[in-house]
Structure formats: C-alpha cells, structure tokens
Amino acid sequence: MHVRLRYVTERHNADGKSRWYWQRRGHPLTRLPDEPVKRYAMAEHLNAQADRAEAGTQVAAEGSIAWVIDKYKESKGYQDLSAGTLKYYNRILNDIRELGPGLPFEVFDRRMVLDFIGTYEGIGDDRKVAAVLRNLFKTAQYWRIVPVNHASELDLSAPAARDRIWSDEEIAAWLKAAAAHPRGEAMITAFHLLHFFAQRPIDMLKMGWSHLRSGAALVRQQKTGKLVEVPCHSALAAHLETLRPTATTVVAYNSKPVSYPAFNVAFREILAKAGLAGAGLQARDLRRTACVRMAEAGATEAQISAVSGHTIETTRQILETYLPRTRAMAQGAITKWEEAVEERRRNKKV
C-alpha cells in the first residue's frame, strides 16, 4: 500500500534520479533518505516536531537532536561531569542543537560527524567534540534511536589542520556546476558568503538580511561568541544585488532557510558534478582560502583577523602553513622595498 507522507515532495536531479524533500511552510527544506522506511520515519519525526511547535508545545519530538540532547542531560554520566568539563560540553551541545533541534538525530551519519568535528579549529577541539558526540550516540542507542555509534573509532591521531585552499579554477568549476543544481541559487549565495566573509558555514547559513547594513555584515560567531563586522567584497555585493529576498535568511531555497545538513549534502553533490569529489575540498576551506588571498593582496595579519575573527596568532599559523612562497609573492616584497626607497629619495629632494 502506498502511504502519502505529509509535506513530502519528490524531485528529480539532472540524472533523472528521484530525491525526496520535506517542505513545510516556516521550516527549513530538508532532504529525506532515499530508503523508504527511513524516509517515512524522518518525515514523521519532522511533522511531529512541526505539529507541536504550531500547537505552542515546546516539547522536543522523540528521536530529534534536541530530544537526544535532553535525554543525555538527564543521565548520570552528564550530571557527574566536573564544572570545567560541563562548560565546554554545554558549548558543544548548544552548537549541535543549533544544527536543527527538530531534525532526527539519525541525520548524524559518519560523514556528518566528521564534517561537524572539522568545523572546530582549536588544538584538541576535535577530541572534545568527538567525546560529546560519542555520548550522544550512546544515549540514542540506549533509546533505540540509532543502531550504530558513528562517533566511535574515529582516527583523530593525525593533525586536525586542513592543508587545502581553493584555486581559482576549482572555484569556477564549482560555481558552474552549482548553477545546474536544484538549489543552485542558494548554494551559490552560500559559497560567496563563505568565500568573501571568511566565516564558518553555520554562521553564514544563519545570516539574515537584517545583518547586512551600510555595505558590511555583522556576524555573531556561534563558536566563539565574537561579533565581527565585515565589509562586503565588491564581487559579493554585486551578487547580493541580483537576489530578491524571500526569507529572513540570505541563504534560502523556496523562501525557506537551508539547514546545515541539507547544505552539506548539496555541497558534496555539486563537488561531484564539478569533478572535484576526489580533490579533498570542503566548504570550510573557503575561510582559509580567503585569508590566504587577502595576504597575497598585501593585507596585514591584524587586518585579516579583523575579517575572519581568528586571533592574530591563529591567523599567523594559517598564513605560515598555507601562504605559498611564490615568485610573485617575492616580487611583491622587492617592489614594495624599491617603492619605499624611491619615496625616501623624493622626500629628501623636497
């Protein structure tokens, strides 16, 4: 018997393959699993959460991210944590909840776990985040929400630092492929925000039109709490002028915000279409790419950190690791030296 699911739509990608999405007014568009049973379960969870919200009930839907977090906080293991450990556990738990409290916890597959861990850049942060996720998975397993702990047995022995920045050719290829994607306009907008504002994906997806003012953006960084004001790059400003605001957020699809999980799925789909699936590129690498490009243009470490929100020390580490020592970079230094000498000569004559 065919069961019609509320607010579920079927769409087809460029290859003619079916994709299913949960689309309900006032809620983020969410990609559903291809497997029918999982698709049904996820849609039911999302509808239950939305029904409760519309009825004025704030109780988290069973099996949702918020529900698992609440169950974990009720556990003895959580309540026995020291004050110091609780401080960073709660920060990470809040970050996880912000991904979408009503989304089913099962959206955390292995790829999602690794993507989320990778958004933390501090020394040792990867292990702290992995520990929090492992405890959440244990809670979800206990309540029969998920069968597998995707946060266990992670290979975190290698340095967490990424070693990739985007080339101009890779950026052009990704943007060309994105134009043919079902969420193309939203993904291209997200890409430009990431590239030219040098912020984390989760912060860019939450950016509202109200945050853009006087040719700049005010960004409250979720992971650090820092408030940074970033002027719009001319290329970004030109792109934003082509958009017609249809939602409170700048990145929107069908007049609805795009969730972090949906963004990750679409981003990887576009990478594959662009022939970049094996290139080791990720969305978060655009932040580092922006730092390198600003340095190549002659910006100082302090100026770059004012844009990205990194500390000056972290900015220095990024540039030390990724800034290429090219002939062009060396020529720029010699040219500046020569210009300074000539300036001194002119001043003496005056």
Rank of each mutant, 00 (worst) to 15 (best):
S234H: 14
V250P: 00
A290F: 06
A295K: 10
P231Y: 12
Q221A: 10
Q221F: 09
R244D: 08
R288L: 11
A302C: 09
T300Y: 07
C232E: 08
L281P: 01
R293E: 14
Q221K: 06
H239T: 06
L281R: 11
R287W: 10
A297P: 10
S255R: 12
Q303H: 07
T224C: 06
L243S: 07
N254Q: 10
T248E: 10
V250Y: 03
I270P: 10
D285H: 12
A290G: 14
I304G: 09
T246Y: 02
A272D: 14
V258G: 00
T246N: 09
R287T: 00
L243A: 11
G278S: 15
A290M: 13
T224V: 07
L271R: 05
A279C: 05
L240D: 07
N264R: 12
T224S: 12
T246V: 08
R244A: 07
V292F: 14
E229N: 11
P261I: 01
A295F: 13
F267Y: 15
A277E: 07
Q282R: 06
S259H: 03
K273T: 12
T246K: 08
L227G: 05
V265I: 14
P257W: 02
A238K: 15
C291H: 05
T249L: 08
Q282S: 02
G280I: 09
A302L: 15
F263H: 06
G298S: 13
G280S: 08
S259G: 05
R293T: 04
P245Q: 05
Q222F: 03
T300S: 15
A252L: 05
L281I: 01
G278T: 03
A299D: 08
C232P: 01
R293Q: 13
V230Q: 13
